[in-house]
Write a protein that binds this DNA or RNA. Structure first.
Lengths: 243, 243
DNA sequence: ATACCAGTGCTTGTATGCCAGTTGCGACGA
DNA sequence: TCGTCGCAACTGGCATACAAGCACTGGTAT
């Protein structure tokens, strides 16, 4: 099918677009944990061939977001508490170590960025915009890394964060936080501006752990999205209704 | 059930074998930094089609070991000092935090494992077996994570370690260490057994940083394997002579 | 009623063909 | 001699065809 209208130009490759779409769908729970995937179905829905879809699934498998059983099927990974704990540990280790290694004086722009982000967080909370809040949360933590000159470590943190994010999104939907999270963020920045890095690290660690504990809370409510360490039972059927 | 009796079958898929071969070749410098790769060439040499090769390259690209320029060519990544520093930071953060969170009493088997590993390291050093020493080094650091119950974080550390490993391998070949490294390893275990975790973390951090500094030393000797942050210069030609 | 067995349709894995884009080099002209 | 242009070869991205294998279903024999 060599039609492919000459619309301006392919800013991104089909694989990049597919990967982005799928990853977003998995993290936002548009594709639910345990949901069956099919290379052919996804290819048809996204109007590409199996190749970009398949390559995207391979990448997502590497990130732990998808499980592939040869000759059987591919599935969105269940939220694995073990893996969530691992992600939590890595994130805490990297972010807190980074912040602890930060040395004043801090660039005024960095501080301004953080403050501006905090205010926008409050706006998003007032608007009840979860998606926007999540974006801001990412930017916030990324900015914290940048503050200490370790922004390049963001990729690793972000990868580890994938499982956490899915669980967090569940907890945000089923409960309330947001305002609480923004408050914790504010405490971190306040401590930084006050020049008390030890306190900042303490606040950050406390914040990260609070997020982690949310996961256990939500697990009690929606156990069907969690893995109990048992072997998976691959079952097909059902459509993905993506996009 | 009853499946395992597959004696002569392909225990691993073509992609798994290809990925393993290529990754090993890159890390061991059998494929040198900057070397041009070709999906077609590699497929021919490994006696598989482009598909497994291509998928392997995509994975290695994600690990930062390979760079792919569409319509131009694929190349083994140069050692990027920035990325090496990032890997160093992540590794130090994760390993030291893990060790700091370890709580006595420690399982006698874990201690025995570490001691046994240390002795084998000395043997490998005496035999001048670099490859073996590298394997033992990996096992050692992995065992350290296990000691604190964070073995599951090994995957992340290992991924970050890729760039470090290439540089370290260079430094081991061109200089002497090994004995020094084993000595530093011993200091860590000694401190652990003495129950002084703070001292153990100090020794570990010192060890990791010494390794990192080796990178700068080797950079002065073999600058052609390092990236200077400049845009890459894609050049084709040349065979890979893989296996 | 139950256990078994083959058929069928799906799955992912692999191979291959085609395409647009880029590079390098040689031919040609000033 | 030097600069420029164009062609040929090669690149990776994508689509597609084929192969191997598992799982469910429905029929059959016990």
């Amino acid at each position: 099918m060599a039609d492919d209208t000459r619309s301006g130009g392919p800013l991104l490759s089909a694989r990049d677009r597919t990967l982005d779409t799928l990853r977003r769908a998995v993290i936002t729970l548009e594709l639910k944990p345990g949901a069956p995937l099919s290379e052919n179905e996804l290819a048809a829905e996204l109007a590409v061939s199996r190749t970009p879809v398949r390559e995207s699934l391979i990448l997502l498998r590497e990130e732990g977001l998808v499980e592939v059983y040869p000759q059987v099927g591919s599935f969105v990974s269940l939220v694995d508490p073990e893996r969530v704990a691992q992600a939590q540990f890595i994130r805490e280790a990297v972010e807190c170590t980074s912040l602890a290694q930060a040395r004043p004086p801090f660039s005024p722009e960095h501080i301004a960025d953080l403050r501006s982000n905090l205010q926008t967080q409050l706006d998003a909370e007032a608007a009840g915009d979860h998606d926007r809040f999540f974006e801001l949360d990412e930017e916030f933590h990324r900015a914290l890394l940048a503050l200490a000159g370790h922004e390049s470590a963001w990729g690793t943190v972000n990868a580890a964060k994938a499982h956490l994010d899915r669980a967090r999104r569940l907890s945000l939907i089923d409960t309330r936080p947001m305002g609480v999270l923004a408050e914790q963020h504010t405490q971190v920045v306040d401590a930084i501006e006050a020049g008390d890095l030890d306190d900042a690290v303490r606040a950050l660690r406390s914040h990260l752990r609070a997020v982690f504990e949310d996961v256990e809370r939500i697990r009690a409510v929606s156990p069907e999205y969690f893995s109990d360490g048992r072997p998976r039972r691959p079952v097909r059927r059902s459509v993905s209704s993506l996009r």
